[in-house]
Write a protein that binds this DNA or RNA. Structure first.
Lengths: 166, 166
DNA sequence: GCTCATTTGTCCGTATGTATC
DNA sequence: TGATACATACGGACAAATGAG
């Protein structure tokens, strides 16, 4: 037994910690616990689970990036590659609101070219700020669910404009 | 024969690497490639250019610090001494934006008490984030280039308030 | 428009273990 | 044995980007 066993700084074993982290993540991908497009835990979380500092985690992630196993979007986090896989992550509030509205459109709660509820109504309905509602509507417009006539309002788009949702 | 024969560790020649680095930096200063107040390359960069580890670079820098040839500001980097020399270093983005705006004021692009462009315009003009623009304006305010009327806007200060720029 | 929170990016300072000469 | 050198690892500080309120 050595004193160094108490407050060691260097490698804690025969295998460097950052290589252990690399292997752990690769294993998670191989076993399917992490799927392409899925978000990795944050660097801080990975550090906690492996008992390592953020620098050590970053070293592991840098190596995985180098190998194109993962990719990183600032400030969202890192995802399992390849980049074109649909992202699996905790949605932002504005994305949840958008999804909820899109769901309503798909279910037929609105007719084509029907005007959407007012911002105030949507704020109350979803319990979010006006800014969030606007971000959600902007996303729906991008995706083709709705169209906006300036100074008039936002309307449900025709069915053939909707995105394919498999 | 040992595998270690490939990746030798010890001194690579008659002169220790850290002394080579010390000499290289002193030569750069003597020849004028490095001027007082100027920022040295980062420790990692020096390590790459000299083919040495960061620790070896740090040993060289520590010796130079001991001799007061350089001084170090954490986390900015090391500068050629003495400390009271004006810093010549890679400016942060917000400092570059501030310098650019101050240049415009000095050149006479704005009249005294004229309002500055909006944050949005400045963001586009300099290709930076809103926060960066704000930091730049805050710096200009500190230096006396501009003054801000809350809820109204930021204006160019009178000439006698400007800092002396030698 | 302003402020806060979260997350990644990039530095410096320091300590330990190990290998070579 | 001691000087030199490298890899590993922890911690702290600050910048940048973006969503949310």
């Amino acid at each position: 037994m050595y004193a160094s066993a108490m407050t060691k700084r260097g490698p804690r074993g025969p295998v460097p910690i950052y290589q252990t982290i690399i292997k752990a993540i690769k294993d998670d991908i191989a076993s399917g616990r992490l799927k392409p497009g899925q978000a990795l835990p944050t660097e801080a979380e990975l550090g906690e689970t492996h008992g390592a500092s953020r620098l050590t985690v970053r070293r592991a992630l840098a190596a995985l990036r180098e190998e194109s196993v993962i990719y990183t979007v600032r400030p969202e986090g890192s995802y399992v590659g390849p980049e074109d896989a649909p992202k699996i992550r905790k949605a932002w509030p504005f994305e949840q609101v958008a999804a909820s509205i899109a769901e309503g459109i798909k279910k037929g709660n609105y007719e084509t070219d029907e005007v959407l509820p007012s911002e105030t109504e949507m704020m109350e309905q979803h319990g979010v700020a006006k800014k969030t509602v606007r971000a959600a509507v902007a996303l729906l417009r991008e995706q083709g669910w709705v169209y906006t006539v300036p100074a008039i309002g936002t309307f449900v788009a025709a069915r053939d404009k909707w995105p394919n949702t498999p």
